[in-house]
């Protein structure tokens, strides 16, 4: 194969046989949450595929905070997110969540709301519960007066948070001005060129 691309020049003479990807070749799914600024709630940003929670954290940092800096991010396995039904119009998603017998104490669960269809889920608060069902029920009591379209709950111990000593992960970004549109001001050069052209003619 003749090409201008050096990578193509390095390809083997014969291509390897076409082997379809097996299921899970791209690993499991992990949900990514980002805190854009200090004091703002964490919001759902998207997903990554990774072989483990730890690698999901590293890939999430690269995929979602490579260009726009943030104060913190965390990830959790998609299987650990319990999801309520999604509603529309004036129906509150909390109205579809059954109340269960609640017990004292338990461990912390994080609660997220979809406040507007099309937007990201936002962190609403924390409840202490002994199961996901109880966490939903307690979230309903704590936040159910708000109109929301969907609710997620995640056990805190299932989340890989940014550790305090990792906060410097984003410190390199301010040096990367070359990734900003504002670093490519061609106006002066263009003006000078146009003036040169008009003086010629």
């Amino acid at each position: 194969m003749k090409s201008l691309d050096p990578r193509v020049q390095r390809l083997p003479e014969e291509l390897p046989p076409l082997q379809p990807k097996a299921p899970l070749d791209q690993f499991g799914s992990f949900e990514v949450f980002v805190q854009p600024k200090e004091g703002k709630p964490f919001q759902h940003e998207g997903i990554v595929h990774a072989p483990s929670l730890e690698l999901a954290f590293v890939l999430a940092k690269e995929a979602f905070t490579r260009r726009f800096t943030c104060t913190s991010l965390y990830v959790t396995d998609t299987r650990n997110v319990m999801v309520s039904p999604t509603t529309e119009g004036n129906q509150n998603a909390y109205d579809l969540i059954p109340s269960v017998t609640e017990h004292q104490g338990g461990e912390p669960f994080e609660v997220y709301h979809l406040m507007k269809r099309g937007k990201q889920h936002l962190h609403a608060g924390t409840v202490e519960a002994n199961s996901h069902e109880e966490a939903f029920s307690k979230a309903k009591a704590a936040f159910g007066s708000k109109q929301v379209f969907n609710v997620w709950v995640v056990r805190r111990s299932d989340i890989r948070f940014t550790r305090p000593e990792e906060q410097d992960l984003w410190l390199t970004l301010p040096e990367k001005k070359f990734r900003d549109a504002s670093d490519y001001k061609g106006g002066d050069k263009l003006k000078e060129f146009l003036e040169r052209q008009s003086s010629k003619s």
Partner: peptide
Amino acid sequence: MNYVTPLA
């Protein structure tokens, strides 16, 4: 690991 459809 287990594949699940991403949530949103």
